[in-house]
Amino acid sequence: MNFTAMGFKSNQAVADTQNTQDTQDVDLLQCDSEYLKVCGLRAAYGDVGVLHGIDFSVAKGQIAVILGANGAGKTTTLRALTGMVSTEGSIRLAGEELVGEPTAEIVRRGVAHVPQGRGTFGDMSVEENLLVGAFVRNDKQVRSDIAYWYQTFPVLGERRNQPAGSLSGGEQQMLAIARALMLRPSLLLLDEPSLGLAPMVTRFLFEQLKASNAIAGTTMLVVEQNAGLALSVASWAYVLEAGEMVLAGPACELAVNDKVRRAYLGY
């Protein structure tokens, strides 16, 4: 098989590849057709560099996943995409440069971000949370979208007037995802959606995400520690190590890659 790996570790990565199955050959440096295209992305907190020039891209309508250990820079990558850390390099969304834009403007271009820890508005009601999610929309379908999410996550409908802070962790994660999708984003960024949730809830959430992707064609970039689950949903996967992209390829192939298996799948 033909993994497309980046950086100076690419040769080694290719050498590690044992699977010979033939797959699509993607030249990442010439992927102008890619919906999200990131080149030489660097990010730092103060003097501490976290990302050291990473390249990756996500095709339109695709679900991509970034795997990596704690501190590899996954969360920082997502935060860089929505302008929440100081960033250098290039982030192009449908050809438009995002680096240097304030967060609110990036979101207004259709990028929704479900942050780690959910970031729900704890003292506002569930319904108000969803309304804020649609803040930048001006169309008439906001109400019907809310009704749709109440249908999808019935528990949210039951608690529509309760403060979001009173929901359980899983319910808050559902709310956070529904709130992000209220934007009707073209790109959804998800930061550890499974964190602290029961396996069943996690599986349910991922099914819903996959359904959204299928129905609305929302492009998704997921950062996840639960590598097995993430790889089963995603079509493309990246591996981030210490601020550098070390591996990239179709999810089904990374799932059987020995290195990935040993490091992230644990068998």
Binding site: T103, A104, V107, G119, F121, V132, F135, V136, L183
Partner: peptide, 20 residues
């Protein structure tokens, strides 16, 4: 609504596209 969102959680408010 924007005002309350900002006072509740500033970062999330930005992520909803609110110009803080």
């Amino acid at each position: 609504l924007a005002f309350r969102a900002v006072s509740s959680n500033l970062e999330s408010a930005q992520l909803m596209g609110i110009r803080v």
